[in-house]
């Protein structure tokens, strides 16, 4: 057992958990942040993606010890009150989700993609960059549309700030 202290969605939290606890289980089982999902056992589906110190990582492949002291952002932490993050809004407006299970990880990965590429995104790049996120419902068509749409929106909102 260890005491883990980290910042999640801007809030300092601490938990006493077994060392084998994965970050995703800390979030879901101990912090009740159930928006982050588990869809596989082999670090491939990306349903568990969160941001750790600003980078999109698979929270099912990170021990809580590795995240100790880190700044974690989950799907619950990206909107500003009622105002959706541009990526969230783009997923809704472009029908980029169906059952919603892969969606939180997809959105967290997609934000990271736009952060890295800025406005220089095209369809092929988005498809390639989504390699680590599996969706069984949408066929990706509208996810790709959503990410490209959000890239434009994020540019605009970044310019506004």
């Amino acid at each position: 057992m260890s005491t883990i202290k980290l910042t999640v969605n801007g809030r300092a939290v601490s938990a006493d958990v077994e060392d084998r606890t994965l970050l995703v289980h800390l979030l879901r089982d101990h912090l009740n942040l159930t928006g982050t999902h588990v869809g596989c056992d082999t670090s491939q589906c990306g349903a568990c993606v969160v941001h750790v110190d600003g980078r999109a990582v698979k929270s099912c492949t990170m021990l809580v010890g590795e995240a100790n002291g880190a700044n974690v952002t989950t799907i619950e932490g990206i909107s500003k009150g009622e105002e959706l993050h541009p990526m969230q809004a783009a997923f809704r407006d472009n029908h980029g989700l169906q059952c919603g299970y892969c969606t939180p990880g997809m959105i967290m990965s997609a934000i990271d993609i736009v952060n890295r590429h800025g406005g220089n995104l095209d369809e092929d790049t988005v498809r390639h960059e989504l390699e680590g996120n599996i969706c069984r419902c949408t066929g990706y068509h509208n996810i790709v549309k959503s990410v490209l749409d959000a890239a434009g929106r994020m540019k605009v909102s970044a310019a506004a700030e």
């Binding site: 879901r28 942040l33 159930t34 928006g35 982050t36 999902h37 588990v38 989950t74 799907i75 619950e76 909107s79 959706l84 969230q88 997923f91 809704r92 407006d93 029908h95 989700l97 919603g100 299970y101 969606t103 939180p104 959105i107």
Partner: peptide, 18 residues
């Protein structure tokens, strides 16, 4: 646009394991 989407895109969906 879908009414159900807001809960899914904000992590507020409620699946059995939740």
């Amino acid at each position: 646009v879908r009414k159900e989407d807001r809960r899914f895109i904000t992590g507020k969906g409620r699946y059995v394991d939740d």
